[in-house]
Amino acid sequence: MTRGNQRDKDRQRAAARAKQAPKGACSQLDANKKALTIVCSICKQQFMGTSSASILNQHAESKHPKSSVTDCFPHLGGGS
């Protein structure tokens, strides 16, 4: 145990940093929930608002082959 004193100092420094850190500021969960703005009208699966049309087309083709893309996502308009 040649580094016992240094280890204690490091532990104290880490505890001081933990007290200074704002609570809840590191959580991304609430922001992720708010970002799920696109919803498939058939199965109600949620997608990020920044999802590209190709990802939404892929979902419609693989999960709902009998329905069109505009049935799943009316906001796309005439997407293929």
Rank of each mutant, 00 (worst) to 15 (best):
A53C: 07
Q46I: 02
L36H: 05
Q6A: 11
A21K: 15
F47W: 08
T2E: 12
K44D: 00
E61G: 07
L29V: 09
C72W: 05
K19P: 00
K9P: 00
S27W: 07
Q45G: 02
H59M: 07
H59R: 04
C26K: 14
N32G: 04
Q46N: 09
Q20R: 15
I55R: 12
S62N: 13
K44H: 15
A60I: 03
H59D: 10
S68D: 06
N57V: 08
H59K: 12
F73H: 03
K34V: 03
C43F: 07
T2V: 08
F73S: 06
S80E: 12
Q12I: 12
L56W: 08
Q12M: 10
H64A: 00
K34R: 13
T2L: 09
A21P: 00
G4F: 08
P65K: 02
K23D: 13
G24H: 08
C40I: 06
G78H: 10
Q46F: 06
E61S: 15
L29A: 15
R7I: 09
K19T: 13
L29Q: 14
V69T: 10
K63W: 02
H64Y: 05
S52H: 11
C43V: 05
A35N: 10
H59A: 10
C72Q: 00
A60N: 07
T50H: 04
R7E: 11
L56E: 03
K33V: 12
H75D: 07
V39W: 01
K34C: 00
M1Y: 10
S67E: 14
G77Y: 09
R11V: 07
K19D: 09
G78Y: 01
C26I: 13
K9L: 10
D8V: 05
T70C: 12
S51G: 03
G4I: 12
C40W: 02
V69A: 10
S68Q: 05
S27I: 04
F47A: 03
V69E: 00
L56C: 04
R3N: 15
A14E: 15
